[in-house]
Design a binder for these strands. Structure first.
Length: 159
DNA sequence: GCCAACGTTGGC
DNA sequence: GCCAACGTTGGC
């Protein structure tokens, strides 16, 4: 009888003007609402409780990874798709047939050193990061090796 | 604020 | 099912 620990890793982007890592520190946990891209959604639907999350600030100066979070609730229908007042409203979504899903993400810790996009680009072992291949995907998988490298770059010794 | 990259929509 | 038009993302 084996108990396999499934822990996957993700990078999630947010514009700090819209929702920052500092805000997550205050909120402790937040629904990762408003993802309206199928591939990003599909990644979230594969997330497990306790999966590691790299919190990435896009449209920031500089853009980069600023902290760690983790998944605390697996995918469920994103409530904003049903709300006509929300900017994320989707008229084609129904309660019985939702289109969009979100996960809950909890604050973990900041990186000691934020890692800019430039630094990621210039790190040889990170060249195959989805971020560097497919810039626009807002929820993307991170390999265990990339996770370790990034924590090391960020000055985190005990994950 | 610009604009390249690229995902989505909808007419056919 | 193609693909042109359109909208969005996100670095710069």
């Amino acid at each position: 009888m084996t108990l396999k620990m499934h822990r996957n890793f993700w990078l999630m982007k947010s514009e700090p003007d819209v929702y920052s890592f500092a805000q997550l520190a205050k909120d402790h946990t937040t629904p990762w609402e408003g993802v309206r891209n199928y591939e990003a959604r599909n990644h979230m639907m594969r997330a497990h409780i306790n999966d590691g999350v790299l919190f990435y600030h896009s449209n920031a100066k500089p853009p980069g990874i600023v902290g760690l979070a983790r998944v605390t609730r697996i995918a469920y229908p994103d409530p904003t798709q049903f709300n006509p007042a929300s900017p994320y409203f989707d008229a084609k979504a129904t309660l019985t047939n939702p289109r969009w899903f979100c996960v809950d993400v909890a604050y973990d810790r900041p990186l000691l050193h934020s890692i800019s996009l430039d630094t990621l680009r210039s790190t040889p072992t990170l060249q195959s990061m989805v971020l560097l291949q497919r810039g626009r995907l807002s929820v993307q998988p991170i390999t265990a090796a990339e996770w370790r490298t990034i924590l090391q770059l960020g000055g985190i010794t005990v994950p």
